[in-house]
Design a binder for these strands. Sequence first.
DNA 1: TGTCCACTGGAACGTACGGCTT
DNA 2: AAGCCGTACGTTCCAGTGGACA
Length: 425
Amino acid sequence: MTSHTNHTVLDNVFQRFLNGPSVFKDRDVLRHDYVPEKLPHREQQIRCFGEIVAPVLRGSRCSNVFIYGKTGTGKTAVVKFVLNTLVQRARQFGAIVKICYVNCRLIGTEYRILSNLCAALGAKVPFTGLAVGEVYERFKKTLNQRKILFIAVLDEIDALIHARGDVLLYELTRINGCLCSSKTSIVGISNDLRFKEFLDPRVLSSLSEEEIVFRPYDAAELRDILSDRAWLAFQKGALLEGSIDLCAALAAAEHGDARRALDLLRVAGEVAERKGESLVTEGHIRQAERRIEHDQTVEALKNLPLHSKLVLCSVYLLGKVKISSAITGDIYEIYRELCDLSGLSPLTQRRVSSLVNELDVIGLLNTRVVSMGRYGRTRKTRLSVARGLIREVFTSDGRLRGLVDHAPKCFSTISSSRGRRRLPL
DNA sequence: TGTCCACTGGAACGTACGGCTT
DNA sequence: AAGCCGTACGTTCCAGTGGACA
């Protein structure tokens, strides 16, 4: 296709978009980062969190708070809403309040979290190169040079434990002892209820001076949330009666996740818009549900590191010969063959075993450790995603295109060995 | 009841890399 | 430029495991 026709196609798309009916008034209202003016069914949590942070207005340090609740239960929205208001009010009272919001899962490491905290105070810290202790010292020094009330919001704080960040938490909960003019408080947010079990008891006691629990929304509550947002997001009459109910019901079935509900509504609107329709129906919601699922999986597959893709491809190939749940040894044999074909040096079996585990965690594989008696202990692995989807994504990847149709030589060994040294799968 | 298999999974360590401090 | 640091990704080693089997 020439560049001229490419432009024509694109111009047609843009023209259709601009001329066609728009179901949206403001689609950004349905995005995750939007903090609404009104948070239905969270009045109690807002009041509770507000009471905890209120001492800041009088220049005192507020208690550390620990907030639990599953994904999409409004934790982050409530925290941002309350703290934004607090900063505004504090200004009127002459108190200097600084807030630093950090998502520990996205930021990832102790070092980067500290450098983010420093950045919030205006202290420059290099992207890498310093010892964590040094960054911590700079953070303390900057706080000591000023007289401010600092609130560090550590969202998805459970990720910090897995990244050995409990040392950082310990330091942060003790920092006020080393400060003379400024004061800090910590707001920890977690959607892992078992998080406390892994925490150092000293950290736990000071981190959870106060606790707030966010229970999941039920379908009726989700309906209210969606109605409010839909009113802002959609044109009048663009949403068929019943669409909101369906979104709410679908999201309520998935542990009352409001984010999921908002996603469904937004994508359904987009589906309708692309079809040039001016009414969002239940059919669009169903399509949105399928599309979200499809897109998430495709995205996950595309972004895998090369060796994880090869491991996944090996499980896919084993499925071809009706071996629905493969054992690690077989996966490794095929994986080695694929490496050979691709001109790569294979990783060790230990490493491949970890990759299989990682693929299980992100939901692309389904594994189960089983003991086959005197035939050893291993892990049975099967695909968690549609084979067609794997094929679709891998054939569009230059390095894997030839591999999805490969017929591994070791299939014969695997099937013959099954009777000899391994139990039937 | 002890043996043995085919691993699992923890821990320690190695290597490469980017980037800061001295 | 050398030395140091954190991070990412990997290897090596090895104790532990659960249940079939002799």
